[in-house]
Write a protein that binds this DNA or RNA. Structure first.
Length: 352
DNA sequence: AATCCGGGGGT
DNA sequence: ACCCCAGGATT
């Protein structure tokens, strides 16, 4: 168990971090301009499990289409998922939308001002709530994102994987201990900048780090050993056959997935567990059907398994009536629908 | 307390 | 091929 720092150590730590921030901190990120609770919330949500460079264009499009929480709350869910297409972790988008509606209906469009109240909203946890309070309101609140985890785990040589409860509890205690009463916004931004630019996962630049003098991992000569990696297990492989049904006018049949779970709420090609199951479905289709064209399978890897996708392209002479959840979609048109990355990829190929 | 949820960029 | 990233919800 890591011992808590003394008051003197805390002051040294904060001064070193803030002095460094004044000289080297980042000030030009899109979400640092006009730091409202809404913009901080959207950016923090996008940045969960997603890197800054990837997020920037998504953030720009999203805040242009939805400048305030009111436009977001008023939008159909498909519009929100559409702007999230390719970002992954689509539950984030659904929670964002639900949360916007709650903020508008319950709080008249103004975000709550305490960590506790914020963390009760869908999609906002302890860290994101702390980010909104400290960054948008400049009031004291700790965050514990990947950057802060890395800085603190190294500074105190905290053992264990941060996904373990005991390790997370230690890191949170340290994050709270160092969180200052003044310059809350600058401190939070400084810790994220430190983790993102110097205290990086590999090849940390300890030579320029303001905390190196008292960093235990640095003194051990092995900063990269902290935080400890997640214990890995091998991923199972799952084959799937996707039916790419296309009309003479190029439109394709897409099916809306259930609202929760993998790719929840997104539109996908009809999927089958085997080629035989897909062929059986073809026989049930009304109208003339071309011979199936079996495309080269490709792999889409998730956190926990490999999905081996076997696309089967079939041309259909005329559209048949479809269920409520199904739609005929023009692949070239960027319709307001949420699509998973492999679906977007195949639709692009179908326009050629 | 452990598991689930995407996709991309770096090495 | 493998690493993991500005986490939160669900079980």
């Amino acid at each position: 168990m890591t011992e808590q720092p003394t008051a003197t150590q805390i002051q040294q730590f904060q001064r070193a971090v803030l002095d460094w921030y004044d000289r080297h901190g980042r000030t030009n990120l899109p979400w640092q301009q006009e730091q409202t609770p809404y913009r901080v919330w959207v950016s923090e949500t996008m940045l969960q499990q997603t890197q800054v460079a990837t997020v920037i264009p998504y953030f720009q499009r999203f805040t242009t289409r939805f400048p305030t929480v009111h436009e977001l709350a008023a939008a159909p869910e498909d519009d929100v998922l559409h702007l999230w297409t390719g970002l992954g972790y689509y539950a984030r988008a659904r929670n964002l939308h639900r949360c916007a509606r709650e903020v508008v209906s319950r709080f008249d469009g103004s975000f709550p001002t305490t960590v506790e109240a914020l963390a009760e909203l869908p999609g906002i946890g302890r860290s994101t709530a702390g980010a909104i309070v400290s960054l948008a309101q400049d009031r004291p609140a700790a965050i514990l994102d990947g950057n802060v985890k890395r800085v603190l785990a190294r500074y105190h040589a905290v053992s264990g994987w941060p996904g373990r409860t005991a390790t997370a509890r230690e890191l949170w205690a340290l994050a709270e201990a160092y969180s200052p009463a003044q310059r809350c916004r600058d401190y939070t931004q400084a810790m994220m900048d430190l983790g993102a630019t110097l205290c990086t996962r590999r090849n940390p630049d300890c030579g320029h780090c303001p905390l190196a003098a008292d960093c235990r991992a640095h003194h051990l000569g092995a900063p990269e050993r902290y935080p400890e990696p997640k214990p890995k297990k091998q991923k199972p492989e799952k084959p799937t056959w996707w039916l790419l049904l296309q009309l003479p006018d190029q439109r394709c049949l897409l099916h809306r997935r259930p609202p929760s779970g993998l790719w929840g709420g997104l539109y996908c090609f009809p999927e089958f567990d085997s080629a035989e199951a897909l062929q059986q479905r073809l026989q049930e289709l009304p109208g003339a059907v071309s011979a199936p064209d079996y495309w080269l399978p490709f792999r889409h890897t998730f956190t926990h398994f490999h999905l081996d996708i076997h696309p089967v392209h079939v041309r259909l002479s005329s559209p048949h009536s479809v269920q409520e959840r199904d739609r005929w979609v023009q692949p070239a048109l960027d319709e307001a629908l949420g699509l998973a990355a492999p679906t977007r990829l195949l639709l692009d190929k179908l326009t050629l």
